[in-house]
C-alpha cells in the first residue's frame, strides 16, 4: 500500500476521527498494515509492548492468565477499536494476551517511532495522549460496570420476598 493510500485508510479509522492532516501524516509514517489469522495471538502477556493496533476488521479477545482458573476472557475488541496502551506506560510490557477470534485486519503502529514523534512534536503527543485517555476512560467505565455484576442475582437475600 502506498503511503497516500495508507493515510486515506487511516483517516477512516474512528480512533483518528478529525485528526489534522499534518498529524495524520506523522502517524502514517509509523503505521503499517497487518493481518492475523483466526486462532493466532496478536501478542502475549509479558512481551515488550512495541506496537499498538487499530482494528479494521475482525475481532480479538483480551485474555488474562488466571492461574488455576485458566484463561479468563475479559473483553472483545472489534473493528474501529484500539488494542494496547502498554507501549505508553512503563514497563512497556503487555499485561494480557490478545487472541484473534476471527481473521483480524489492523493497522500496526510502531511505538518507538510514535514516542519519538510525540516527544519532538508536543501537539502530536498531546493529541495521541488525549485520544488514548478517552479509550482508557471508556475501558475503565466498562470494567467498573462488569465489576458491578449488574445482572447477577447476588442481591437475592435482600429481595427474598419476591
Amino acid at each position: 500500500m502506498k503511503p497516500q493510500d495508507l493515510t486515506e485508510s487511516l483517516r477512516k479509522h474512528p480512533f483518528l476521527n478529525n485528526l489534522s492532516e499534518d498529524l495524520l501524516k506523522t502517524l502514517t509514517s509509523c503505521a503499517s498494515n497487518v493481518v492475523f489469522d483466526e486462532g493466532t495471538y496478536l501478542f502475549h502477556e509479558g512481551e515488550d509492548a512495541k506496537i499498538f493496533y487499530l482494528l479494521r476488521s475482525g475481532r480479538a479477545v483480551l485474555e488474562i492468565a488466571g492461574g488455576e482458573r485458566g484463561q479468563i476472557r475479559i473483553q472483545t475488541v472489534g473493528a474501529g477499536e484500539v488494542i494496547g496502551w502498554s507501549w505508553l506506560i512503563s514497563p512497556y510490557r503487555w499485561h494480557f494476551d490478545a487472541f484473534a477470534l476471527e481473521q483480524v485486519h489492523a493497522f500496526a503502529i510502531d511505538a518507538s517511532c510514535l514516542i519519538t514523534k510525540c516527544e519532538t512534536d508536543c501537539r502530536f503527543g498531546y493529541e495521541m495522549l488525549r485520544r488514548f485517555s478517552e479509550v482508557l476512560e471508556r475501558r475503565l467505565e466498562a470494567t467498573r460496570l462488569q465489576l458491578l455484576d449488574v445482572y447477577g442475582s447476588n442481591l437475592g437475600e435482600r429481595g427474598e420476598n419476591y
Binding site: L155, G156, G159
Partner: peptide
Amino acid sequence: DFARVSGGN
C-alpha cells in the same frame, strides 16, 4: 422493606 425489589432495595 418498603422499596425492596427482587434485585435489591
